[in-house]
Design a protein around this nucleic acid. Sequence first.
DNA 1: TCAAAAGTGTTGCAGCTACACCCATGT
DNA 2: ACATGGGTGTAGCTGCAACACTTTTGA
Lengths: 238, 238
Amino acid sequence: MNHISLDCVIFGFNNNELKVLLLHLKYSKEYTLPGGFLKHDETLEQAAQRIVKERTGLNNLFLKQFKAFSDPDRSKSNKAIFDADMAGTKPDMTFFGKRFISVGFYALVDFRKVKPTPDLFSDRCDWVSLTADVTMLLDHKQIIQEAISTLRLQLNQQPIGLKLLPHKFTMPELQTLYETILGRDLDRRNFQRKILNYNILDKLRERKTGGAHKSPYFYSFNVERYKKALEEGLSGIW
Amino acid sequence: MNHISLDCVIFGFNNNELKVLLLHLKYSKEYTLPGGFLKHDETLEQAAQRIVKERTGLNNLFLKQFKAFSDPDRSKSNKAIFDADMAGTKPDMTFFGKRFISVGFYALVDFRKVKPTPDLFSDRCDWVSLTADVTMLLDHKQIIQEAISTLRLQLNQQPIGLKLLPHKFTMPELQTLYETILGRDLDRRNFQRKILNYNILDKLRERKTGGAHKSPYFYSFNVERYKKALEEGLSGIW
DNA sequence: TCAAAAGTGTTGCAGCTACACCCATGT
DNA sequence: ACATGGGTGTAGCTGCAACACTTTTGA
């Protein structure tokens, strides 16, 4: 008899940084991944959509299961945390004393469309940069790491850029996204040529103004061609 | 309150065919994936090892989680099946009436080392070729398909050849394995050159005799170099 | 006017594709 | 002897890596 929970790693891209949407717990002052429990007559995917919607206000997001976490020790510290957190609310303690299996999902969202919303146990809901060094609940840091590894492996199979970037974006922005996910630098010129060769981008006439220096062109994904290209996987290794 | 089950897709390679180890149910005459339930104080990975050991006799196999299946409709037909199957054995029927979440694992085993062992509900435990058209329980056919898709995507990240082939194997055997997983033919000469360039194979002096025609050399994996190469992923797309 | 970022072009090399030829073995 | 499969070699092309130069912009 086990309880199934979900943890969602919600990725957004802003200010040339990859960020994760986290809840800040009132009691323990730690950050935690948005999560929840699987309801009856709900698939894991539906539960993940529900959870992400509650935190972001967005429906129908791009979501992917990446791993089930089942170490019996994972949930042992749960009880203590919830004991304190829910003091006075008379929770069902037998529930939290039990064991949890958690299925990890990652979500890719358009940063600008999200309205971060805290839940009952948290005082804030923040975008936290991956480079930020914050304290996190349990093994949530590892879960985020696993999510990024998965992202990296699936970069050529999933519409990662399409889902993370706004409709219009510049080539340097796209490159930074790829560099962040891959964890290494790419040659600006080779990157541009390679990605353009896939024929999945439309170059717009418009340029991005306001920044210092030469203004870059905007691009947007040609969704049809992108989806088609992904079916075979974008060849080559970055 | 959910029950967690596991389904294991156990792959073996024999007679130049990729095969899956399946149980043949006494009652329904259908094939089913070896599976079981998660016990307390057991990780999913440990449970999978236990289940695979019961069917194959082998310990410590290469096992990988690939997806959790959670459609509420999946398990509805379970009750009927087990009602009939366990008639007279007084099982806990409330148990089987409940909902199941199943975590899919795939295992890669050396065909020749396996002793297929049926369980209580089955009269046989057979290696079934992927090309064979057999009737399978519930969505088990799709689960196998998902396992193969995963295999294909991970061909360059996981030691798939190493785990599926016997210690000594020939180049044509290795090629057939790759072709089966990828679902398409590869050029014999280019395949050989490419795989040899990875420097992960040791060519043995010995040749395979007994077949008609020219006898091919045996090769074996250089485990050390293979593991090392996989850390970065074998570059290139097949 | 200058520094920094962005657009564009070129060259060489590596690796893949698509082939052909020879060799060995059981029938 | 011969059909079939396995070992080895090569030519051409593609595409990537590693580069430099010019253009645009705000400060």
